[in-house]
């Protein structure tokens, strides 16, 4: 508990100093660069990996990325069917995604440039099952996320955060950790 308090204390002092710095800055302007990113979303029950390409506005610190994510293995899932029948499949999952996020605040913590970020991952969730011709139901997903961003002088970013991702599976929690590496080209 005391470590969390200490961390928050450090952050709050950094927020104060960063906000002073922010106000002293000159007016921002749009500065778009293209990006490539690797996405990892996981919890104790599931894992998805993906690649995205998009843009990052260095001036206003927002980004948009189109990506393709997949579960790199077949996972047993249970889907409630009619009349108390539960169907258990081995499922592979795909997500065609659009990520929109915004970075904000600047902290200098132990020499590392940190920021907060928040955004949303939207997209179409697809899947198929082994042993059958039927595919998993398609879902449109909108998963909010947020967390900490390690900023490598606007050359790249490492984002670690939390994502609330509803994949409509009873045996997989909606809470996921996201770890995304982004390179500005």
């Amino acid at each position: 508990m005391k470590y969390i308090f200490l961390f928050l204390l450090i952050l709050s002092t950094q927020i104060c100093s960063s906000q002073v710095g922010e106000s002293a800055k000159t007016t921002k302007k749009i500065e778009i660069v293209t990006t490539l990113s690797i996405n990892n979303d996981f919890n104790l029950q599931d894992y998805m990996i993906g690649l995205s390409a998009g843009i990052e506005d260095l001036g206003f610190e927002w980004g948009a990325r189109v990506g393709f994510n997949l579960r790199p293995f077949y996972k047993k899932v249970q889907i409630k069917s009619e009349n108390n029948i539960v169907r258990q499949y081995r499922e592979q999952k795909y997500l065609i995604s659009l990520d929109l996020d915004k970075r904000f605040l600047h902290f200098d913590v132990f020499g590392y440039k940190l920021q907060l970020f928040a955004g949303v991952r939207t997209g179409l969730l697809l899947g198929n099952y082994k042993g059958t011709k039927i595919d998993a139901d398609k879902f449109f997903v909108a998963a909010p996320f947020g967390g900490l961003c390690l900023n490598f002088n606007d050359v790249g970013y490492l984002k670690l955060g939390y994502m609330q991702f509803n994949d409509h599976l009873t045996n997989v929690s909606d809470s996921k950790i996201m770890l995304t590496g982004i390179i500005n080209l």
């Binding site: 249970q78 108390n84 029948i85 258990q88 499949y89 081995r90 082994k130 042993g131 059958t132």
Partner: peptide, 11 residues
């Protein structure tokens, strides 16, 4: 008693 689980696999 209350449900039937149908487990499927194929390859």
């Amino acid at each position: 008693s209350n449900q039937t689980i149908v487990a499927l696999d194929g390859t």
